[in-house]
Design a protein around this nucleic acid. Structure first.
Lengths: 122, 122
DNA sequence: CGGTATCCAGGATGATACTG
DNA sequence: CAGTATCATCCTGGATACCG
């Protein structure tokens, strides 16, 4: 999902939000930066081993473009770059928290379901 | 994004949640069903005119598979099908709400930004 | 270290037409 | 109405090579 709000004029709040945070790995990236901040690219990669580097960088760039995160480049050798949530990015904490909470509920729900099925087999 | 939790063994809560609700239009669909329920396919399409029918149906099927929504088929002519959030799907309300709230914040943030840029031009 | 460039493959998404 | 089938396109992922 690409950033689109610059080209469109009308958006509901959910459409606007989803156009920014709906990308494949964006919530995961924001989750990382809520755990620890700032983070270097290599550190984000440790948090998210399933994301390949190219995709990770793409999503980071898009988040940067939308001012969700800030990218700090230190002019040193070897290069050092740090990522950090910006003002509006930090406000995503309730979104990430509610998603994680629901994930917990869903896990319990799945386990209840497993138990039910096992009972049915008796 | 496809449902994956059936094949994988280890998941953080966020990964589990995202594997279920991370699909391109799933949050939007859930948003619809929180506005009004039950809904027929054609009604969801009115809520979400940007989603093509094939994709909408796919995402509905995946959500059904994961027990987030329930699909009721009435054996009438012409066909009548209704969609409704299930027990665990209803618990997604805080997720959708927090996303909408953030969207509002982001919109304000963008407008502040526009004003700043206009001031800079003076 | 933190990228970019390229190629290739597969899956996700979209547009359109068609059907029971 | 609620889909399915088909075809085209875009997004994503993996591997690799290379650079400042």
């Amino acid at each position: 999902m690409e950033t689109q709000y610059k080209e469109k004029t009308f958006f509901t709040s959910k459409d606007l939000a989803l156009s920014v945070i709906g990308g494949r790995w964006k919530i995961a990236i924001i989750w990382c930066l809520l755990q620890q901040s700032p983070l270097r690219l290599s550190e984000i990669q440790k948090y998210l081993p399933d994301v390949n580097q190219r995709m990770l960088i793409r999503q980071l760039r898009e988040l940067e473009e939308d001012k969700i995160i800030t990218r700090y480049v230190y002019p040193v050798v070897p290069p050092k770059v740090e990522y950090e949530l910006g003002e509006i990015g930090l406000l995503l904490e309730p979104v990430v928290t509610s998603i994680c909470d629901w994930g917990d509920n869903f896990r319990e729900y799945l386990e209840k379901d497993v138990n039910k099925n096992q009972l049915n087999k008796i």
